[in-house]
Design a protein around this nucleic acid. Structure first.
Length: 768
DNA sequence: CTACTCTCC
């Protein structure tokens, strides 16, 4: 704190003040009464010369930002918001882009609740890491504090908070993790859920959790913020919570539809883009397509046809940029480059065309976009509980998504959106909202989390959109077989441990069991490698070289061991960047695998799982690892039938080894990491196992009566029979041995008893 | 003989 007495510029304050503490205190701030503040009182506290949170004098920059904050649409409704939150536990707030809700509402809450006076804090959740970080940074500036002190953020691998923190932005996944060890979120006096309209898995679960917590903690306040107008559903879900609507600040976007349906949307998008370039005024174009391959193809075509157009029609130059998440970061940066200058001074203006997946729908904002081309499709995850498979399907987007895409044209000035479908189709064929993720996912991990969150009654699980019972059953079944849930669907000891690992339950089970096989270190590495995007790069122009490079790491047992080889090689190379480039590996993925491995290792240590490795030169080095793998993946096994085709053992799906597999032979028994549903059914990331292991490691699963008939089943039955005969033999021998031992023991005991008796009697006699 | 839409712990 600056000492006023030594500061000549502030001497007048010292003179007039009663004492030093009072003189540089924020009087207005000191008058705030928790949960009784008014907008006027809050503004007075913000207008003071001193920061009520830190006691420091406000900076010039603070005052400049404050003026801007006052102009945000949400500020006009500060009093309205405070009135609602004073009288209700839940408030639903709808604010479109540009309303200022994400930065301002948490600050209003902070001044109103003063959580720090009770040693608590306020959390505001975001679906994405970057958002949590950048908003926290912004709000720290607005409050004139250092990021990580009074205002901080918390995301995976990075906790930027301190004991001083009173407002924390975090990913919703992070808050969920916290709730797993503190079911009532008792550290928090208020929770603000942002971007709730996106309905991510984590947001949906958090919403359910908040409803649950609210019944047990009358003191907690909850604000649910959404950008869409289907607020009624939110209000209803949160016990008829009151609604506050805040207008946004964007520019109008004109919508155009095609008169007739387009047969080939790729071709239509290219034509539309070039037509815009030829006829519309300056402004960049954003085209939404579905995936990497399609986007690269579109860029090629655009470049070729664009050159032609520029030559013939004297249009300006074009900058064509692809955008999707697996694009290397330096390539992603290109979307922020300016449109090219006219070829000659005063000539036709240049234009930038960004061809993107729906990463540009929410995650990335590109300034300067004036035209949006929306063919109306996206790759979306779907879950089929019957075959227990998640897959990607190109499917029509929802009206809400179409609206979101169109909005991308109006961020800097009025724009236009060209929808490559008819208006009738928009009204009749598109669904209102995208199905929330929870209805499109395998719920294994989720159910485990819910149990850990203390939400036990899954039958009456209160979700905004209840999931299909069959999907729940699948999840319970999986967790039961893994030993994470007991017969009454309660968390077991192992289940507790599995739930603490931030990976698929099968992988966690593998790590835990690996301790029995002396190979936890290797299991950690494999689990990490399986939890990151594909490490193998295969550029179209160098496919052979890439395949050859991958071949260098190939392990004859299969892909899991190959991944282990890659990880080991990565850890021992001296120039990771160059080495990855030379070997067609994705440095980003490997770095991330390393981070994740470290996180997993810490969880293992926390639960006293010993970190073991077998002797690398021992012949059992790899078999032990494969056994650990089997302990996690015994439900994902395929058998090579005599006709040369693989059948999954549990439900007789015909599958093919994925062509990316390093296995150039067809082992009879394999476990697989993933079932891929495209034109054909593939199993991807595959390793050879022995049928004996299946029965040995997962006897509870291999109750063969319930399995459909196939060769694999017959072989397993034979082995089981042999085992049982052996077992009977052993049992007999053991019983014999037991009998003998018992008899021996009995004899011994009788002898001893006799001795004791005589001793006792002797003592008694002695004492008498 | 082929894929990784997008996130998150």
């Amino acid at each position: 704190m600056a000492d006023i007495r030594n500061n000549p510029y502030l001497a007048h304050m010292h003179d007039s003040a009663q004492n030093e503490a009072d003189s540089n205190a924020n009087q207005a701030f000191a008058k705030l009464v928790p949960q009784k503040t008014t907008a006027a009182q809050q503004e007075a506290a913000e207008n003071d010369d001193y920061n009520g949170l830190t006691g420091r004098q406000f900076s010039e920059k603070y005052k400049q930002i404050l003026a801007k904050r006052r102009e945000l649409p949400v500020n006009k409704q500060r009093q309205g918001f405070l009135d609602l939150i004073h009288n209700h536990q839940f408030v639903v707030l709808v604010g479109e882009t540009g309303s200022g809700k994400t930065t301002q509402i948490p600050q209003y809450m902070l001044l109103d609740m003063l959580p720090q006076t009770e040693g608590k804090l306020i959390a505001c959740t975001q679906p994405r890491r970057v958002a949590a970080m950048s908003v926290a940074q912004r709000v720290a500036e607005e409050l004139d504090v250092k990021l990580g002190q009074e205002v901080g953020y918390s995301i995976r691998f990075e906790d930027c908070t301190s004991s001083k923190t009173m407002l924390k932005y975090c990913t919703d996944g992070m808050l969920l993790r916290e709730a797993m060890s503190d079911n009532l979120l008792s550290r928090y006096s208020a929770i603000i859920l942002d971007e709730a309209h996106e309905r991510t898995l984590n947001t949906d679960i958090l919403m359910s959790l908040m409803k649950n917590i609210a019944t047990k903690r009358s003191d907690i306040k909850i604000v649910v913020m959404s950008a869409t107008l289907d607020s009624e559903k939110f209000q209803k879900y949160f016990n008829d919570a009151p609604l506050l609507t805040v207008p946004g600040r964007t520019f109008p976007v004109e919508i155009y539809y095609t008169p007739e349906p387009e047969r080939d949307y790729l071709d239509a998008s290219i034509k539309t883009a070039l037509q815009i370039h030829a006829t519309e005024p300056e402004g960049d174009i954003l085209v939404f397509l579905t995936g990497e391959e399609e986007i690269e193809e579109a860029c090629r075509l655009l470049r070729a046809r664009g050159d032609d157009l520029i030559r013939r029609a004297q249009c300006g130059p074009l900058l064509i940029v692809p955008l999707y998440s697996t694009l290397p970061p330096n390539m992603q940066q290109k979307i922020f480059e300016k449109a090219p200058e006219p070829r000659t001074k005063g000539g036709a203006p240049g234009r930038k065309i960004v061809v993107s997946t729906n990463i540009a729908e929410t995650s990335l904002t590109i300034d300067g976009i004036v035209y949006v081309i929306d063919p109306g499709f996206a790759k979306q995850k779907v879950y089929n509980p019957r075959v227990r498979v998640e897959s990607l399907l190109v499917s029509p987007i929802s009206r809400a998504a179409a609206q979101q895409r169109a909005g991308r044209a109006g961020r800097t000035r009025p724009g236009k959106c060209f929808r490559l479908y008819t208006e009738k189709s928009f009204q009749n064929d598109l669904i209102e909202q995208t199905y929330p993720e929870i209805l499109r996912s395998n719920l294994g991990t989720i159910v485990l989390q819910l149990k850990k969150l203390g939400i036990d009654d899954l039958v009456h699980l209160d979700l905004m959109d209840p999931c299909a019972p069959e999907v729940l059953m699948r999840a319970l079944e999986l967790l039961h077989y893994l030993g994470a849930l007991d017969d009454d669907a309660n968390l077991t000891q192992i289940g507790h441990i599995i739930s603490e690992f931030p990976i698929d339950p099968q992988l966690a089970k593998m790590i835990i069991t690996a301790a029995d096989y002396g190979c936890t270190n290797e299991a950690l590495s494999i689990a990490a490698m399986l939890s990151v995007p594909n490490v193998f790069v295969r550029p179209r122009e160098a496919q052979r070289a890439a395949d050859a490079a991958k071949g260098e790491f190939a392990h004859m047992d299969g892909d899991h061991m190959t991944l282990l080889n890659v990880y080991h090689a990565y850890k021992s190379c001296s120039e990771p960047a160059q080495w990855c480039w030379d070997n067609f590996l994705q440095l980003r993925s490997l770095k991330s695998a390393d981070n994740i491995r470290e996180q997993l290792r810490r969880v293992a240590v926390k639960f006293d799982i010993p970190l073991l490795s077998n002797d690398f030169n021992s012949p059992s080095y790899y078999p032990q690892i494969r056994k650990a793998l089997t302990a996690g993946y015994f439900m994902q096994v395929a058998h090579l039938e005599r006709n040369g085709q693989y059948l999954t053992v549990k439900d007789n799906q015909m599958v093919l080894l994925h062509p990316s597999s390093v296995l150039d032979r067809k082992p009879e028994w394999v476990v697989y990491n993933e079932f891929v549903l495209t034109k054909r059914h593939y199993i991807r990331t595959v390793t050879e196992v022995k049928p004996e292991w299946l029965l040995e490691i997962a006897p509870h699963y291999y109750h063969l009566e319930s399995f459909p008939a196939c060769e694999g089943k017959r072989i397993l039955e034979k082995i089981a029979l042999k085992n049982s005969i052996l077992q009977d033999d052993q049992e007999k021998k053991r019983r014999k041995k037991d009998k003998k031992e018992k008899k021996d023991k009995k004899d011994k005991k009788e002898k001893k008893d006799k001795k004791d008796k005589s001793k006792k009697e002797k003592r008694r006699r002695d004492s008498d």
